[in-house]
Simulated scan of single mutants.
Amino acid sequence: MSRFHDLKFRAVTTLQRWVANPLSRRLPFQTLLETTGRKSGQPRRTPLGGSRVGDEFWIVSEYGEKSQYVRNIQANPRVRVRIKGRWHHGTAHLLPEDDARARLRSLPRMNSAAVRAVGTNLLTVRVDLED
């Protein structure tokens, strides 16, 4: 990773961790992804944008395998997703072969624009929903 991308990653993730995410998690209809912490075993909730298509929920991670929630998925793919205020259980799958930039065109516009603007290593994630 270049020095510029490393600085960008640190700045964005610090802002997300300490400002944006704590505020977003409190919004009742914010979409949340709940993973299990790979070290702590505790639930970790990440606000994000994505789209439900049938029994699948699609996400594009800005930083690929550097994202904490992606690292948690690698350790345990069982997740929950809160969509429109309702929790759904599912299994997450990392799809490095998927064209993440093309996928962003099918996801919510505002979130996709932010992911494209700050992301440095896009990775598609599909969650197969069970309920």
Rank of each mutant, 00 (worst) to 15 (best):
F4N: 06
H5R: 15
L7P: 07
K8P: 02
A11W: 13
T13L: 06
R17K: 15
R17A: 11
R17D: 13
W18M: 10
P22Y: 13
P22G: 08
S24A: 15
S24P: 01
P28S: 09
P28C: 10
P28R: 05
F29W: 05
L32T: 07
L32Q: 06
L33K: 03
G37A: 11
G37L: 08
G37D: 10
R38C: 11
R38M: 12
K39M: 07
G41R: 15
Q42G: 04
Q42D: 10
P43N: 09
T46C: 05
L48Y: 06
G49W: 07
G50R: 01
S51M: 09
S51E: 13
V53Q: 15
E56D: 15
E56C: 04
W58F: 10
I59G: 01
V60P: 02
S61K: 12
Y63K: 08
E65I: 11
S67N: 14
Q68N: 14
Q68L: 12
Q68S: 15
Q68K: 13
Y69F: 15
Y69Q: 00
V70E: 12
V70W: 01
V70A: 09
R71N: 10
R71G: 07
R71H: 11
N72H: 10
I73H: 04
Q74D: 07
P77Y: 03
V79F: 14
V79P: 10
R80V: 06
R80G: 03
V81T: 08
V81P: 04
V81M: 09
R82A: 12
R82Q: 14
I83F: 14
K84V: 00
W87V: 12
W87H: 11
H89Q: 14
T91W: 09
H93W: 10
H93Y: 12
L95N: 00
P96T: 05
P96C: 11
E97A: 13
D98G: 03
A100V: 06
R101V: 02
A102F: 01
L104R: 04
S106Y: 04
P108A: 09
P108I: 00
R109T: 02
R109H: 01
N111Q: 08
N111V: 00
A113K: 08
A114V: 11
V115H: 02
V115C: 03
A117G: 00
G119W: 01
G119A: 00
G119H: 00
G119T: 03
N121E: 14
L122T: 03
V125N: 01
R126F: 04
V127L: 04
V127R: 02
D128A: 02
D128C: 02
D128I: 00
L129K: 00
D131Q: 09
